[in-house]
Amino acid sequence: MSAYDYSREEFAAVFAELQKTYQIYGPKRFVGRGRFSDTDLVRYAPLASLDELELAEKSSLSPKSLVFPADETIFHFNDHEFSQPQLKENGEIIVLLRPCDINGIARLDKMFLENGGQADPYYQRRRQRLHFFMIECRESFENCFCVSMKSNTTDNYEVALRFAGDRVAAQIKDQRYEGLFGQKGRAGSFSPEFVSENDKQVELPTVETMPAEMFNHKMWEEYDSRCIACGRCNTSCVTCSCFSTVDLFYADSRQCGERRRVWDGCHLDGFSDMAGGHSFRKNKGERMRFKAFHKIYDFRKRFGFDMCVGCGRCDDVCPEYISFSSCINKLSRTLKGGSDK
């Protein structure tokens, strides 16, 4: 392991050098593309240069689209065969992301690479070419509760970066970058720090088994009328991994088309609809409970750690001001016999 210091210009040159081999993704600001007019959208995208890296604002959508795109063609078909498409660009990708999101992708790994016993080939081929460059995160954004979720730290990265004013520091964990980083920088001693306290704290339920009465407890009822099933909490979440499969065919040739998989979410209508019109979670409160349990209870039962990484995006984006973190606290209070208010 080694560390280097750079001026911003020097590091921009390292960045440009890396781009000769890798495509570099990171949070990027799209001016005027925000939900409201004259607001911006921050999302993960290929960065043309270091200047495009957005550090001041949390991305409203997570880097999960790099491994699990919102809409991905899984087959091309005609009447008699299905064929798996090649990845359009097969090169290696460096992604600049924060510890919570690195931990978030580790959650996705559990689902896509392990659950059910078979690896998902579409996820796997995108995941394999991904290299984590961790953006050091010393100060949390609004609504973050990564510390409570123990996802504030990680060592799952190849390079860690500190952006401080017009200085950049790098810690190199993977030898392959040594030459490139060493050339342009001065040896330093940087080792990343992590957020150790968030404004928002969450108390997780400690029960081994969720009491059955919590499933239709009245604490969920308030969400029946509050949640509008818009699905933003699911789409923004770095760990939500649900999808649906749809076929579409080309208007010009009705024999050919694509099978695609698109994000779905347990808050959206139709997620649990069955033949005959039966739907398992019609009420939004039930959906809230389903999501909450998955994030902080079910997943842990299956994989040994919680799904939610406390990135706080769901709280950032909910148009109805439903706070998931507050919901977890309420759940824990209720479990301890306290008030569900």
């Binding site: 689902m111 991994s241 999808f243 499969t245 998989r261």
Partner: peptide
């Protein structure tokens, strides 16, 4: 959707 323990 998947039958493989992926789609949720």
């Amino acid at each position: 959707s998947c039958g493989l323990g992926k789609c949720g």
